[in-house]
Design a protein around this nucleic acid. Structure first.
Lengths: 187, 187
DNA sequence: CTCTAACCTGAACCTGAATTCCGGTTCCGA
DNA sequence: TCGGAACCGGAATTCAGGTTCAGGTTAGAG
């Protein structure tokens, strides 16, 4: 996709990285409302350079989102390490949501109506989904989640919480309420 | 706000209504993505006429949202009629969400980051909020909702569900899960 | 050190809407 | 029936942002 084709000239590689960093920072803060000019300025480059590395704004966005999903996959993998299935689940859930809170673009990508489209654009998402599925299954099998809980439900909860990220406290309360209906006692 | 100032010429009143209807229909289907030209065409009028009645797109949107909140207040009032507090609560919740499902603009207004702003723009919202508060209190007092449930939580749940209105079934599942954690047995 | 393909720049350009504006129309009171 | 204030139509204007491109600049192979 946005694969760093082999052998970029040193300065080109450096600039590409600068663009990614600047865009990541700005998109995270203000979602896709940021303008290409801003990104270019922050990266200390001309707009033209952005277009040399990314076909259009959408592609740049996609690259950033892909990065996030990679990070999410790592996070999920770490959560899956946990001995206790419930701990694994909770770690994943909160880790994911905290990342979402810190990144407006990521949130936007997940909440927007074109969400399904990211599957193609950000293939990194597949990894994450797979691990999530495993963690959910573990918790269900251990009897710590209602028996009919599915990975899809994880998405539902997650979206629900993200919709309440206007104020910092709201989504935690939301998750608390939901968890209560989903969780099952240890024994 | 968009008060139909006294004495509009007959045709003007008729046109104003046509605009409101056309806009309501289109906004409901596609949110604020619809263009002024489309609305004008559907209303069988020129764009200029829209601007004669509403300062700008935002104002037109606000008028529509206001209408919805009026309808929601009516709905809430009806729900409050119910003898059983839980029935009242559930009726309100589902009625509200079904309306949201049927109206993208309404949903958009409630989910968007400028949500708070609607309090000023659509004063009709106040009514709705008041009744909602009463219904929630009734259910809590009757011991049918967890003791610490507040009207704010109703908003949380509601936003959470709306975020899952991409597919028609998702939000119902979401509400089911949440209700489980919130509800308290009859006795 | 040279030369050129690969890069970069940023002003100009384009596009898609919202909004304006003014020459006609129409309602309606006298 | 008449006059003019209220209205209406819709092409023209404005504007914000994304995207392009005609030159200038290097990195780095030879």
């Amino acid at each position: 996709m946005t694969a760093p084709e082999r052998s970029l000239r040193a300065d080109a590689r450096r600039n590409r990285e600068a663009v990614l960093d600047a865009a990541g920072e700005l998109f995270a803060r203000r979602g896709d409302a940021v303008q290409m000019d801003e990104i270019a300025e922050r990266a200390g480059l001309g707009v033209g350079t952005l277009y040399r590395h990314f076909a259009d704004k959408q592609a740049l966005l996609a690259a950033i989102i892909g990065r996030r999903f990679e990070a999410m996959a790592t996070l999920a993998r770490a959560a899956d390490e946990a001995e206790d299935p419930w701990t694994a689940f909770e770690t994943l859930l909160y880790g994911y949501l905290e990342s979402a809170q810190a990144d407006a673009a990521f949130r936007f990508a997940l909440l927007g109506p074109e969400e399904p489209r990211w599957n193609d654009i950000a293939t990194e998402k597949t990894d994450f989904s797979a691990i999530t599925e495993r963690i959910v299954r573990r918790a269900v099998d251990a009897g710590r989640l209602r028996e009919d809980f599915r990975a899809d439900d994880f998405v539902l909860i997650t979206r629900g919480a993200m919709a309440n990220m206007t104020d910092a406290a709201g989504w935690r309360r939301h998750v608390t309420l939901v968890l209560e209906g989903i969780r099952r006692p240890e024994r």
